[in-house]
Nucleic acid binder design. Structure first.
Lengths: 363, 363
DNA sequence: GGACGTGGGAGACCAATGAACAAGTCGGTT
DNA sequence: AACCGACTTGTTCATTGGTCTCCCACGTCC
């Protein structure tokens, strides 16, 4: 289709050999080529619109400049997009391209391995393996040993390096935001799934209360399936008049959405009667709820970028990924402040405006 | 890193030449190889875990088996994921892989062209160009002439084939759903942007009313920016007591979300007092609003799949894409029925349950 | 004994890279 | 004045992992 111009066309046009063209175009250090010849070559390449055939280049140099990206359920979560974006942008900035393969969280170990094999046949220089939510994972056998980074998941056997969100730090900031606003009776809507986030966020919740000298009440933690209906149900239980908290830390934005409805039905105004803080920063929800939801952002873009940056460093021999393999790298989850947090009405009437004490940083 | 086994390793192991290995592994028709030799080769390949080097293969055959996928703002919309998913799954089913490049809707024409050039240097066999919402587009110059399909957008000059959603049909079904439920006074919340969808959906709205013998009232169409706040504002105007419709067709789910809030503040219950139907089927919103929103789905997965299927057909010479270039292919937008549509209370008390007359098909 | 069929191999080729080497130039030395 | 060695400036050739077009060897059959 495209009668692609090759290096030999440039060579012919410039009246030199292909090797010379290769040398000048690649700025080979040890190559001694006259200035004038260099110019002739450049001019010819320019004029012909020459671009190197990356395939041939890859074959010869044993380096494809391609990174394989395996993602579970690319489509089911909007988050995946930001991981891909982070990975793609940093890859391209360094001269690499992304080859994408979709997997499913339910697919067999065999099919995962063949996904990797597929990419290996394509001679990718390294592999990024992304899951749709933070969890522990048994990596495909043929993944170990090659340059690879897990995104948003941890390798059970700790042989492959990985990058994850700092759940603890994020949850701590969320709760601290509530405390800073003057709340002393804080509830939590938690998930029922046995995933790392469930435990980390609860732990951070307890720790942060303790650090602030606040008591922990078992009945102020209500758990349900981490979707809107679950948030609604759990909030209904949590917001019963007799034991009602003045602020609620929600496992995620979807549960917060359910909680908004519960609050509405109970005649509670947000944030006057009750404050909420979510987790995930799902734009579609957090920005559009009324009032807009203060929440914790998951660093998807950053994880994609970090993973790619380090993968390429490893490919180029600048880093040894094994150094990272033992412990996943945790990236900070920044707060995004919106309108769902206010000061409690009763009790501590001391702090009305948001105090200027900074939110706890999550190192 | 991976001491990859090559065809020559297999040849040595089987005691034959590389030519023979190539012949048997590729089932070359004209190759004459004894049955027993075939087996030896297969066995050796299996045992060594041989997989062909796709790069070398591509170099020789001038066919890379790679499809370039350029997407604007991969991350900003959850829809993109479904297009990619559709494309990836059908590509893989046919032995191709996707190479992804992210672009931005604001990037210069030059940078778009260099995106294409990048892919061309990689020797992709064809290119998929996806936009994040349905619109008309000036395609990069170097895209024309090669196998390419536009996804969710149309080429201004009609030289590149494209696949888009059937806006008209989808909007028609939406309005018809309302009519079938017994509504006679129907409003619309429209977008203010000058994009194809704005005009098509409004036209379909009018046409469908006319077909049903219903009058069109100018004041029952309110337009705003197509986001939640816009929907809220427009709905506030539309739902004024004196001229209030009993059902509303919303430009998209986000505007519907805003309209839900307006209805709530006005003390209107959905769907008892007012019915809504949205557009886009943004799961996060449509499923989670209360009550869940009846809406029209955009065929993102299907467009990705269609585009890929036809692109590959073109690459393999089974189709001539030029046949499609003149007019974009429109894929149906199916209704997804949830709980936001009911029958009007006053007036026509005739039909209470949803009538069994089928929704208008959108061919 | 020549034509034909069967089984399989040699070697060019795809578009690049890179090590080794060759032709031309020039300064200095004897 | 002739020779030598060092530089400059490119070129040749092998290589990467496959594919594919001949071509060859060996039997067999008429």
């Amino acid at each position: 289709m495209n009668k692609s111009v090759g290096i030999k066309d440039v060579a012919a046009a410039a009246g030199v050999s292909v090797t010379t063209v290769s040398h000048v175009l690649n700025d080979v250090v040890y190559a001694r080529v006259g200035v004038e010849t260099r110019e002739r070559v450049h001019e010819a390449a320019q004029r012909l619109g020459y671009g190197p055939n990356r395939l041939a280049q890859a074959l010869r140099t044993q380096r494809s400049g391609m990174i394989g990206f395996i993602s579970e359920e690319i489509a089911t979560t909007p988050h995946a997009g930001r991981i891909i974006l982070g990975a793609e942008e940093t890859a391209r900035a360094r001269g690499y391209n992304l080859m994408i393969i979709n997997s499913t969280s339910t697919s067999s170990q065999d099919s995962r391995e063949s996904d990797v094999a597929d990419l290996l046949d394509r001679q990718v220089d390294g592999i990024l393996y992304a899951t749709m939510y933070h969890r522990k994972l048994a990596v495909p056998k043929n993944l170990v040993g090659l340059p690879a980074v897990l995104v948003d998941s941890e390798d059970i056997s700790h042989t492959v390096s990985s990058v994850i969100p700092d759940e603890i730090g994020g949850a701590r900031s969320a709760v601290q935001t509530l405390i800073d606003a003057g709340h002393t009776r804080i509830g939590m809507l938690n998930n029922t799934d046995d995933v790392p986030a469930t435990h980390s966020r609860l732990r951070a919740f307890k720790d942060t209360l303790a650090n602030a000298g606040l008591p922990f009440h078992e009945e102020l933690v209500q758990s349900e399936h981490s979707e809107v209906p679950g948030g609604y149900q759990a909030a209904l239980r949590l917001l019963k008049p007799q034991s009602r908290p003045t602020a609620v830390f929600c496992y995620n934005d979807r549960m917060a959405m359910g909680a908004y409805r519960a609050a509405g039905e109970l005649g509670l105004r947000i944030p006057d009667d009750i404050s909420f803080v979510g987790f995930d920063n799902q734009q579609l929800i957090a920005e559009n709820l009324y009032p807009a939801l203060t929440t914790v952002a998951l660093p998807h873009y950053e994880m994609g970028a970090w993973a790619t940056e380090n993968l390429i460093d490893a490919i180029e021999g600048k880093t040894d990924l094994h150094l990272f393999a033992a412990h996943p790298t945790a990236l900070p989850c920044p707060m995004v402040l919106r309108d769902s947090v206010g000061s409690p009405k009763h009790k501590d009437a001391s702090s009305r405006a948001a105090p200027d004490s900074p939110t706890h940083a999550n190192t």
